[in-house]
């Protein structure tokens, strides 16, 4: 099964929509709740990252019998220092975003903790693509 969702940068009112849709589908497929939890945490963080940092992006979910692959491709500023971005507590979020309770530097670490495979490709000035793989068993 392949699904696709568009995400607009800056639109926090819609943040979490893709995560909520994919959660519903995985529930219908009777996927183990502990696996759904990991998918939802990783995807929500990645979705919020596009809203908080990029101009726009596309989320693609590929659900197969063995697991789910999430690809989040954005047009945005890119990440100049990925290692730094992966450090818990490090954030480049704006003050307004932080006041909402986002931008605490926990996004990428949360994704990494919950994914079986996690890859970041980024080009500064162009955008970032995350690939997150989670196995169902």
């Amino acid at each position: 099964m392949k699904l696709e969702y568009k995400v607009e940068g800056g639109d926090f009112t819609a943040a979490g929509f893709a995560s909520s849709q994919i959660k519903k589908i995985l529930k219908q497929l009777n996927i183990d709740p502990s696996v759904i939890k990991r998918v939802v945490i990783a995807l929500y963080e990645a979705e919020v990252n596009i809203v908080a940092h990029a101009y726009r992006g596309v989320i693609k979910a590929h659900i197969e019998s063995g697991g789910i692959t999430l690809t989040l491709e954005d047009e945005g500023p890119g990440i100049p220092d990925v290692e730094m971005a992966m450090t818990p507590g490090f954030s480049t979020a704006t003050k307004a975003v932080r006041e909402m309770g986002f931008g605490a530097g926990m996004g990428l670490p949360n994704i990494s903790e919950n994914a079986d495979s996690f890859n970041i490709e980024t080009i500064v000035g162009k955008g970032t693509t995350l690939t997150i793989g989670i196995k169902f068993k």
């Binding site: 943040a15 929500y44 909402m100 309770g101």
Partner: peptide, 16 residues
């Protein structure tokens, strides 16, 4: 328990 009042708290509460 929180002092955040915006819509995103519902997304988090529902997802979790």
């Amino acid at each position: 328990i929180t002092l955040q009042t915006h819509k995103n708290i519902m997304a988090v509460a529902s997802l979790r």
